[in-house]
Each structure stands twice: as C-alpha cells, then as structure tokens.
Design a protein around this nucleic acid. Sequence first.
DNA 1: CGATTTCCATAACGGCTGGTATATAAGTTA
DNA 2: TAACTTATATACCAGCCGTTATGGAAATCG
Lengths: 203, 203
Amino acid sequence: MEIEAPTATKGRPREFCVDAALAAALRVFWSKGYEGASMADLTDAMGITKPSLYAAFGNKEALFNKALDLYEREKADYMRAALEAPTARGVAERLMYGALDMYTCPDNPNGCLGVISSVACGAEAECIREAVVERGAAAKRAMLDRFARAKAEGDFPADTDPDGLAQFLIAVNQGMAVQAGSGASRAELERLVETSLKLWPGR
Amino acid sequence: MEIEAPTATKGRPREFCVDAALAAALRVFWSKGYEGASMADLTDAMGITKPSLYAAFGNKEALFNKALDLYEREKADYMRAALEAPTARGVAERLMYGALDMYTCPDNPNGCLGVISSVACGAEAECIREAVVERGAAAKRAMLDRFARAKAEGDFPADTDPDGLAQFLIAVNQGMAVQAGSGASRAELERLVETSLKLWPGR
DNA sequence: CGATTTCCATAACGGCTGGTATATAAGTTA
DNA sequence: TAACTTATATACCAGCCGTTATGGAAATCG
C-alpha cells in the first residue's frame, strides 16, 4: 500500500501545480470557512475545474484537511516556535506577537482558520469541527506541558496556576482572532497584546 | 406609519405564540449559526410551517435580527448590568462570571451568538455579520466609556491603559465563548475566569 | 346567515449545493 | 505510428436552499 500515488510517468500530465492550488484553496477556506466556501469558489480561486479538483484531492472534506495541514505547517508554526522560548514570559511574548503578525498580515485573510472552523455551523460540517477542535486540544496539551515545566523551573510566582495561564493565553489568542476577523485594526490588536503582556506575571 | 401591525381583530387568529416561536428560533441560530440554520431546522423547532414563519417574521434575515434583539435583551443583559458595578474590578468580575454562567448554562446552547455570527461565512450572510459586528462595536464603546470613568475615579494604577483593559476583557470573553462552543467544561472556563481576574490590576 | 379576512397546509418554484458520467485532448510507451 | 493512460472540459445529476403561489379552514363583522 502506498501513501500517495507516486507521480505516474504514463498518461497526460496535469496542467496545474498541486501545491499552488492547495494554497489557493487554503485562502478560500480561511476567509469563508468550510461551509461558506463553495466548490465554485474553490475551483475559481484554484484555477481548475471540478473534475480536476476531485481527481487531485478527493472531495471537499479531504481538500479542507489538506489545507488545514498546510495551515498548521506554514501559518501556525509560530505556536510551535513560541513554546521553544526559554522562559514562560518568552513563550507568551512570542505567541502573542506571532499571532498578531499572522492575523494582521495583509497577504493573508484576517483571523484564524482554526477559530473560524471550530465555531458552530451546519450539520454536514460537524466532522470538520471535530477535527479542528482535536488539533486545538493537542496544541493546548503542548502548552500545558510547557508551562508545567516553566512552573518547575521557577518561571512563575509560587501561587500562580500554570494550567490557568495556558488557558488564558489561548483565550486571548482566540479573542484576538475573532476581533481580527471582525475588522479590528493592527493598532487595536497591538494594544490588546501589550496590555495582556503587562498583566502577565513576572518581569 | 406603524412599527408593527396592531393585532388585527378580524380574520382567523394564529395558532402559535410568536414569542415562543421566536425563542425557539433563537436557540437554533445560537447553536448552528445563521447559515447553518436552515429554514427546515427553524420551522421544525418553532413548530410552525414556512408560510406561517414568513407571514409572522418576514424572512430568514428579519427573523435572525429579531432573535438577536431577544438575545441581547434577555441573554446578554449581563453585559449591561456589569457596567453598573461600582468599580472597574467589579465590572470585570460581573462580566466574566456572567459570561461564564451564560456560556455554560445547560438550558442554553453553549457559546455566544455574537461570536458565532461574526466569524467568516458565506457571502449571503455578510449583512448579518455586519449587523452583529456593529452591535459588538457599540458594546465596546460602552465599556471604553465605563473604563475611562474608572480611570478618572482612580480605579486603576497610573500607568495602566483603560482602553487596553477594555479590549482585553472583551478578548477573554470572546475566547471563553469560542472554548465553550468547542465543548470546554465549566471547570475549565472557571479556571480561565479566575486566572484572568487574578491578573487584573488592583486588589 | 353570508361576506370578509386572515391563517394554515401542501406543493411547487428557480437556483445553488457537492459530486460525476461522458467525451475529447494530451501526453508516454512500444 | 499505434496503443495506452491520464487530465481536462462540458454537461448533468439528485437534493437541498430560501421563498412563494394556491386552496381550503377558521375566525370576526354586518
């Protein structure tokens, strides 16, 4: 069994770049959500026809999951990088400024694909929702682990709850994503980030 | 010009309670979002047929706006009440515990109708999105005013930015709504609230 | 009692949804 | 060149979307 068909050498070669098409699909999902993105929206943005899309990616759900993979790999990598900061405060700083940069980057749709896809929508998107929520839970576990270590290393005052701080950081991040998606300016979100970091314990 | 047709005395009386039907519609929008809620979902939950719905409420968009009015009046009233607290810390406490109660009330759908409706979706829902975002902006202005007053009354340390704190409070609230919609337990959200209030300046 | 007015139920509308069958074009292999 | 394999293009499918026309039922008014 093979994970993916190894670029066949026989037959007519495809006329489009799979990676570029997937990147275009990501942009559509990112700005309209899973249900809000119609197949017509997707094929238009990807510059291919529906049969080509189905042949290359399976169906809409499979396309979304591949787009989500790409998103995590390229766009949400700041989260993984943030956890490598030497101190808990460094983690918080890298996370919030990284989110700020990504949510307000003029090349991207505003907001967070994970947040957009995890809020309630129609029944057909329930499996999508579950998949996205599960990835969020994994990210949360990683942060809990990181802050447990930080607590052990004395990054926090004795009376602070590292799990609570992790949840807090995630919540502010999600709130920032919601506001970015609602048209908040970069200056507004910067103020949010700076206020949050001023409240953060230590330093 | 009349705001609403004054219950006509002639003709066959309707067989359902408009208020109860609207409350049922609110529950559907609240759990599925505007686009995720189909007319079939709505009529099923409201216990009426489509022509009755259109006669009583206009169309789907008008129905949503009336449901949104009801939501603000009955469900999101804790926000207005919170701003009446005597101190800024009191505002923050009432707001967060009020949100916690509402987002996790077992009688309600989990999460916040405003957040659900303000994240990106299809093109047809753009006017809905704008309406909801505008209400959020009004709520934000009210909080900015309240915290400007708090600053003048000496509720905050001299170096704190009241606008930043308002935005911060809103962001945590939105994050809490996102997490509640993703299945977070009340205990988790309680921990988030307590952590946030511990970080809040003063007392 | 009609006459009138309004509501309810059924069924249908055009348009869009995600997904495909068919036919043709464009390559590689022999 | 002939055979084969795969991609593209067009058209189409059943099903759902929000919305509405139609016909009859139930109430009040004169």
